[in-house]
Deep mutational scan, measured.
Amino acid sequence: GKELVLALYDYQEKSPREVTMKKGDILTLLNSTNKDWWKVEVNDRQGFVPAAYVKKL
């Protein structure tokens, strides 16, 4: 099944490779191999968020 993460904080994208999320959002985790930036999918968009801003559910 898909792995989900919870947004712990708001995050505003700073580049086209990133995505914006709001605290409390549930996101689909696509890739967590990089310890600093995790790739997630939110609202049919894929991009990176800081790993410290999310936690695995």
Rank of each mutant, 00 (worst) to 15 (best):
G1I: 14
G1S: 15
K2H: 14
K2M: 12
K2V: 13
K2L: 14
E3W: 12
E3T: 14
E3P: 12
E3C: 14
E3Y: 11
L4E: 06
L4T: 09
L4V: 09
L4G: 03
L4Y: 15
L4D: 04
L4K: 14
V5K: 01
V5P: 01
V5E: 00
V5W: 08
L6P: 00
L6V: 14
L6S: 05
L6N: 03
A7M: 02
A7G: 03
A7S: 06
L8P: 00
L8T: 03
L8C: 08
L8H: 03
L8E: 04
L8N: 02
Y9Q: 13
Y9L: 10
D10C: 05
D10S: 09
D10Q: 03
D10L: 02
D10P: 06
Y11M: 01
Y11S: 01
Q12V: 13
Q12W: 12
Q12G: 08
Q12F: 13
Q12C: 11
Q12E: 14
E13L: 07
E13F: 06
E13V: 06
K14E: 09
K14Q: 13
K14W: 04
K14P: 04
S15M: 07
S15C: 09
S15P: 05
S15K: 07
P16V: 10
P16G: 10
R17N: 15
R17I: 12
R17W: 15
R17H: 14
R17K: 12
R17F: 14
E18V: 05
E18R: 04
E18T: 08
V19H: 04
V19F: 14
V19K: 02
V19G: 02
V19E: 01
V19P: 01
V19S: 03
V19T: 06
T20C: 06
T20W: 04
T20G: 08
T20P: 05
T20M: 04
T20L: 02
M21Q: 01
M21L: 09
M21D: 01
M21Y: 02
M21R: 00
M21N: 00
K22L: 09
K22V: 09
K22G: 05
K22S: 09
K22M: 10
K23M: 08
K23Q: 10
K23N: 04
K23C: 07
G24C: 08
G24E: 02
G24A: 03
G24I: 00
G24M: 03
G24V: 00
D25S: 07
D25P: 00
I26Q: 05
I26N: 03
I26T: 06
I26W: 05
I26L: 09
L27P: 00
L27Y: 11
L27N: 01
T28I: 15
T28K: 12
T28V: 15
L29M: 04
L29K: 02
L29I: 04
L30W: 06
L30D: 01
L30A: 03
L30Y: 04
L30P: 00
N31W: 07
N31K: 07
N31M: 08
N31E: 15
N31I: 08
N31A: 10
S32P: 06
S32G: 11
S32D: 15
S32W: 11
S32F: 07
S32E: 14
T33F: 10
T33Y: 10
T33H: 12
T33I: 09
T33A: 11
T33G: 10
N34H: 13
N34T: 07
N34V: 05
N34Y: 10
N34P: 05
K35A: 14
K35E: 12
K35N: 12
K35Y: 08
K35L: 10
K35H: 11
K35W: 08
K35V: 13
D36M: 11
D36S: 12
D36C: 12
D36K: 13
W37D: 01
W37P: 00
W37L: 04
W38T: 03
W38F: 07
W38D: 00
W38N: 01
W38M: 04
W38Q: 01
W38I: 05
K39H: 12
K39T: 08
K39N: 07
K39R: 11
K39Q: 13
K39S: 08
K39V: 14
K39F: 15
K39D: 03
V40R: 00
V40P: 00
V40F: 00
V40H: 00
V40A: 02
V40Y: 02
E41Q: 14
E41Y: 07
E41G: 08
V42S: 14
V42Q: 14
V42F: 15
V42H: 15
N43T: 09
N43L: 13
N43Q: 12
D44M: 10
D44E: 12
D44F: 09
D44V: 05
D44Q: 11
R45Y: 05
R45C: 06
Q46P: 06
Q46M: 10
Q46S: 11
Q46D: 07
Q46K: 09
G47C: 03
G47D: 01
G47R: 02
F48E: 05
F48A: 02
F48P: 00
V49I: 08
V49A: 03
V49Q: 00
V49E: 00
V49P: 00
P50V: 02
P50A: 02
P50Q: 02
P50H: 02
P50E: 02
P50F: 04
P50W: 03
A51Q: 06
A51L: 02
A51H: 03
A51F: 03
A51W: 02
A51S: 11
A51C: 07
A52S: 15
A52M: 11
A52W: 09
A52C: 13
A52H: 13
Y53P: 01
Y53S: 10
Y53A: 11
Y53V: 06
Y53C: 10
Y53Q: 05
Y53W: 07
Y53F: 13
V54I: 08
V54A: 03
V54E: 01
V54L: 15
V54C: 12
V54F: 05
K55A: 13
K55G: 08
K55M: 15
K55E: 13
K55F: 11
K55D: 07
K55I: 15
K55C: 14
K56L: 15
K56T: 08
K56A: 08
K56H: 09
L57E: 05
L57H: 06
L57F: 09
L57A: 05
L57T: 07
